[in-house]
Amino acid sequence: MISTDVIVIGAGPVGLFAVHQLGIIGLKAEIIDNLNKVGGQCSELYPDKPIYDIPGIPKCTGETLTENLMEQIEPFGSKIHLNERVQEVVKEGTKWKVTTSKQKIFNTSAIIIAGGVGSFEPRKFSLKDSENFEGKSIFYSVKDKSFFENKDICIFGGGDSALDWSIELSKKSKVTLVHRRDEFRGANKSIEIVNKLKKDGKIQVETPYQLESIEGKDKIKSVMIKNEDGKNKKIKADILLGFFGLIMQLGPIANWGLGMDKKTIAVNTENFETNQKGIFAVGDICSYPGKLKLILSGFHETALAARGCFKYARPNEKYRFEFTTTSKSIKKRLGVKNDKQE
């Protein structure tokens, strides 16, 4: 079991800045995120797209913003637990017990939920029987390349993942790439390579087609694909890979007894606490009158939520407001030795 002052759920920009705001007032935090990297929507949805409304930064990409935030919280040494989803949150005495999908257990005084619109999960095939084959012959990611050698693989999707894996897996397997429209949205370079491989007969490309049905009992034998005009085509395949991007699913948060309003958590605007004492919600996931889903609003919310956590983590101490420019204790926490040389 890991004991800490505050658990931050979500490693997007707002979750990362929450760690900063907790750190400068002397609270220890651990971050948990379901993705395999930090940055949340900034890394997953728009890493290369510039953001123009971060105060004091005229223009920066989601990726740069994430890197800068990581640098900013580095002095606090917070552990980041990636590839783990928080499953359960239970009150134990005056503390909260937090359990993850990897059965890691945390004991914490307070929780800040910075979960965005929920956790990212791959969008799956909509066919009902696709579930039966999932993990055996239907996959949404490639973990071990060798498993995909000497197979008949049908890849669905039109983005970079679909193109890159079509190129890579076609070296050792027969690959058919299926997309719902003629245009691909991946990098131009990848599209050129796929077109060349198609011309050389190394990849079969089928557009505008979508999956219609799967044939096979225990194993997939073939799939039927269909275009908008109702024309069907049968493709021999024993493996299907779907790359339809990620969707955001609220997941277990809905079961934690929080006041939910559709997919958001109702909070007060004094310290962004939820209806559960010691659980705070900030960023896109929280709602209150006038809420804006902006990164800058999330940053503001973390500053107040962090102070709200203080009374739970340090019940016998009084919180004192300080500036980073003048406070010796904050500078110590930041590891600043001599301002003038920094």
């Binding site: 909509s126 983005g159 997309h179 719902r180 245009e183 949205r185 908008e228 339809f244 990620l246 969707i247």
Partner: peptide, 13 residues
Amino acid sequence: EEDMIDMAFEPNK
């Protein structure tokens, strides 16, 4: 918009 529709549930024309 079309790129985003690629990620929608059961898109059609």
